[in-house]
Simulated assay, not measured.
Amino acid sequence: MAPVLGAFLAGPASAVVLEGAIVRQTGNGQFVILDAGEVFAVGEDNFDDDNLYAFNEDQNIVLDRAIRVDIGAQEGLIPEGTTVASHYVFFDAVRGTHLGFVIFDAPILGVAAFQDTMAATDFLANNEVVYLSPELRGLEEGDEVWIDSDDPNKLWVFWSGSSPGDYIRVFTERSPGAMM
């Protein structure tokens, strides 16, 4: 990956993933917000449980280039100069299906849901997390993700888990909850 030049406003994240829940599932999981300031690894079946997870990546970054997304954003692009907050949402179950949601403190601009768009936006991670098997990230066939039509801060997921799991990157508008 080429180095990214430009001014990035970086700082530790605060409570920008506000809450979430699993509404229906085959399993016994719950919604968990992880602290990306601590070292942990995600990917390669590292969690293998029924939980729906989210954590904050870099916050309030002024994009020095447009980024492509698979869901949301007009024409699939978030334009250069936009201030975004980046978040990671995943389900790493051996098997099972669940319907759940995640609520952010700012409206969702777009979602990177496939390997190529996730890889192209890895420069927005900027945390202590170790991303294992990045070539296996994204959604599996039949998985669904959508932005709530009545609440632009709410993301719905309907995922069936299998190895290695389901992983997406969510971009919101500037996060008022992030510390600068």
Rank of each mutant, 00 (worst) to 15 (best):
S163Q: 10
G76Q: 05
G161W: 00
E75N: 15
V62M: 08
F40T: 08
F31N: 08
V69E: 02
L52W: 08
I22F: 02
I61W: 01
H87R: 04
F114C: 05
A7P: 09
S149D: 14
L132W: 04
M118R: 07
F47D: 13
A112R: 03
L77M: 13
A93N: 13
D166V: 03
F101Q: 07
E75I: 02
T83Y: 00
D45E: 08
D151F: 02
V102H: 07
V130R: 15
V129M: 06
D116E: 14
Q59N: 13
N56W: 00
G29R: 03
G11L: 03
R169I: 14
F158K: 11
A125V: 08
S160C: 01
D166M: 05
M1S: 14
H87P: 09
N51D: 15
E128T: 12
A41I: 02
N28C: 04
D150V: 05
A13Y: 00
F40R: 05
F158I: 03
V23G: 01
L109Q: 09
P152T: 03
A66N: 03
D105V: 04
A21K: 15
G110T: 06
A106R: 10
E38R: 11
V42A: 04
D70V: 08
L9P: 00
S163W: 14
A13G: 10
H98A: 11
V17K: 01
Y53E: 12
D150Q: 15
V94G: 08
L124C: 11
G27M: 01
P12G: 08
I78T: 02
M1N: 12
L9C: 05
V17W: 05
N153S: 13
M180E: 14
D166H: 06
N56E: 15
A73K: 01
V89A: 04
A36D: 13
A73H: 06
G6N: 06
Y167S: 15
G27N: 10
R65M: 07
G20F: 06
H98K: 10
A178G: 14
G37I: 00
A112P: 04
S149Q: 11
F8A: 15
S14N: 10
A178E: 08
F90S: 10
Y131Q: 13
Q59Y: 03
D45G: 15
N56T: 15
A93L: 04
H87W: 03
D148Q: 12
G96E: 10
N153Q: 11
D58Y: 11
S133K: 05
N56I: 02
D92E: 12
A54P: 00
E75C: 09
E140P: 00
E144F: 03
N46K: 09
M118T: 00
G6S: 08
